[in-house]
Amino acid sequence: MHEATDRLLREVTRRTERAIHDRDCPAITALQGDRKLLLSDYDYLRDEPTAEAFEHRAAARAREIYTVRFVFAVPQVWLFTDETIYGRAVANLPLHEGEQELVVWTAFDLEEGVDYGYLPYARRPGGEPAFDEEDQMVITIPTRPKGNYPGFHLLQDLMQDGWRPLRDAIPVRVELRSLMVVEVVQYR
């Protein structure tokens, strides 16, 4: 990951952490191009059409500032199985067995391509979230995100809408460490 993208990722995850401490769960994206823009949407987790609409609005803004990198992050709850990752919106309710609260992110850089990852967090007995940036995970296995993965529509919009500088610059970068394909499936 490019150093500037890593800095942007840390900034966005810190902002997301502060929101979670305040019991908010917004999607936050940072777009960096001619200037840096920070966008957030507190309704992102309500449903898929709302999430997709925010990502389309973010893509429009990204084109306006000739974005060279972005980070998109949102809190979610994931349940990991051997073949699939199930995801749902966060709630201030107890987790079901095997569930993990995470800040899920997508990071994109023109030079380095796309990275996917997450920052898990735990809750103290009083319900206060506890984060450790050392726990940040970059998914290093071949990954095929679906349309409901955070940042998917933003990335797709920038690649497919004819904005040639972005589409032509995306390198193919895959680290083969496993043959597992990760798919996030929404559940409630």
Rank of each mutant, 00 (worst) to 15 (best):
T81P: 02
T81N: 00
T81I: 12
T81C: 00
E83D: 15
E83G: 11
E83R: 15
E83H: 13
E83L: 13
T84E: 07
T84K: 13
I85P: 00
I85Q: 00
I85N: 02
I85E: 00
I85M: 05
Y86V: 12
Y86W: 14
Y86M: 13
Y86T: 09
Y86R: 11
G87E: 10
G87W: 06
G87Q: 12
R88C: 06
R88A: 05
A89M: 11
A89C: 08
A89F: 04
A89W: 09
V90E: 09
V90R: 11
V90H: 05
V90Q: 09
V90M: 08
A91K: 15
A91W: 07
N92E: 13
N92W: 15
N92M: 14
N92V: 13
N92F: 11
L93K: 15
L93F: 01
L93I: 12
P94Y: 04
P94G: 00
L95R: 03
H96D: 14
H96C: 08
H96G: 05
E97S: 10
E97Q: 12
E97G: 02
G98I: 02
G98K: 03
E99Y: 03
E99V: 01
E99W: 02
Q100H: 04
Q100W: 01
E101P: 05
L102T: 10
L102C: 10
L102G: 01
V103Y: 03
V103A: 08
V103D: 04
V103T: 10
V104S: 10
V104A: 13
V104H: 05
V104E: 00
V104M: 13
W105S: 04
W105D: 07
T106P: 06
T106N: 00
A107N: 11
F108D: 03
F108Q: 05
F108T: 06
F108V: 12
D109N: 08
D109T: 03
D109W: 03
D109L: 07
D109M: 07
D109V: 06
L110A: 14
L110Q: 03
L110N: 03
L110M: 15
L110V: 15
L110P: 01
L110Y: 02
L110D: 05
L110G: 06
E111Q: 14
E111A: 11
E111L: 15
E112R: 13
E112W: 10
E112G: 08
V114T: 13
V114K: 01
D115N: 13
D115S: 13
Y116E: 02
Y116G: 04
G117E: 02
G117K: 01
Y118D: 00
Y118W: 12
Y118G: 06
L119T: 00
P120N: 05
P120F: 02
P120H: 06
P120G: 02
Y121M: 07
Y121I: 08
Y121H: 09
A122G: 03
A122R: 15
R123H: 07
R123T: 05
R123P: 01
R124I: 14
R124Y: 05
R124Q: 08
P125V: 15
P125T: 13
G126R: 08
G127S: 09
G127R: 09
E128C: 02
E128W: 08
P129A: 09
P129R: 13
P129Q: 09
A130L: 14
A130T: 12
A130P: 02
A130G: 04
F131N: 02
F131Y: 09
D132E: 04
